[in-house]
């Protein structure tokens, strides 16, 4: 499963908003096939960190080293913009909390999936449509909905469509920002099952930001706990949840309501 290099190596990532700390000095390695969860309350810096890693925000300091297919580990932050965009369209994927941020709402479901394929050079209409249909099936959206627009879909379907759009190019690394946030628990379970299956089948590595400890327990191998922009604890997911060391993690774990 694991090669010689981590797939992603984040080093000293720091971002401030004026005097306010977004995230400070965050470092970790993510190995191929690993899923890492980042938890923390709203404002703890987890989304800032995710945006800095994914290139949606420019950090003040640090490095994001990705093991590229062609030339090995390279600092993404130092890459020329076109190259970074290509990476974002091919090997990387970003699943937003709100599907509207990750989908094109005016374009059909099939178009949303096909667009990403065209972005990496696919031109044959029949093949693009066939691949889009296949992916809609994998995320459990009926083929006859291929020409409908996402606005006509439920929230859970939109989220599944966003996942299909992101994974169709066979990325190696997926960033997810609260992927199950705002969904009914029954829909969440379905999405969890889907993500778990896709991660395993495709051998994906993923970084999942969430405030839902049940989600990370089921999906993440490793866990990082953030508070006020700092990583206060990290380790194996079940160790962090079952034997939390930091006061904040203990509070977080003991605050979960039992059903």
């Amino acid at each position: 499963m694991s090669g010689a290099h981590p797939l992603l190596s984040v080093q000293g990532l720091t971002k401030s908003y004026g005097a306010r700390r977004g995230c400070a000095d965050v470092s970790f390695d993510l190995w191929p096939g690993e899923v890492m969860g980042i938890v923390g309350e709203s404002g703890s810096g987890k989304s800032t960190l995710l945006s800095c890693m994914a290139g949606n925000l420019t950090p003040d300091a640090g490095a994001v080293v990705f093991d590229t297919r062609t030339s090995g580990p390279r600092d993404v932050l130092a890459m020329p913009e076109p190259e970074r965009r290509m990476l974002a369209r091919t090997d990387w994927a970003f699943v937003h909390q709100n599907p509207r941020d990750g989908l094109r709402m005016g374009v059909s479901a099939g178009g949303n999936v096909g667009e990403r394929l065209m972005g990496v050079g696919a031109r044959h209409y029949g093949q693009i449509r066939a691949q889009a249909t296949d992916w809609l099936g994998r995320v459990e959206i009926a083929a006859e909905r291929i020409d409908d627009r996402p606005a006509q879909f439920s929230g859970g379907m939109q989220q599944r469509l966003q996942i299909a759009r992101n994974l169709v190019t066979g990325p190696r690394l997926v960033f997810m920002d609260e992927p199950t946030g705002g969904l009914d628990v029954s829909v969440q379970a379905r999405l969890l099952d889907l993500m778990r299956g896709l991660v395993r089948q495709m051998g994906l590595s993923a970084v999942i930001v969430t405030h839902d400890l049940a989600v990370v327990r089921l999906l993440a191998d490793r866990l990082m706990v953030m508070k006020d922009g700092l990583v206060v604890e990290e380790g194996l997911t079940d160790q962090v949840l079952d034997d939390p060391q930091h006061a904040y993690t203990q509070l977080l774990v003991s605050s979960v309501l039992q059903v």
């Binding site: 969890l192 191998d221 194996l236």
Partner: peptide, 23 residues
């Protein structure tokens, strides 16, 4: 963590008292 994960994958098995699975 990755060493513990690798150990659990092929070497160390566990039967706990509770079943924890994705619904």
């Amino acid at each position: 963590p990755r060493d513990v994960i690798a150990l659990r994958r092929g070497t160390l098995g566990h039967v706990s008292q509770f079943l924890r699975v994705v619904p």
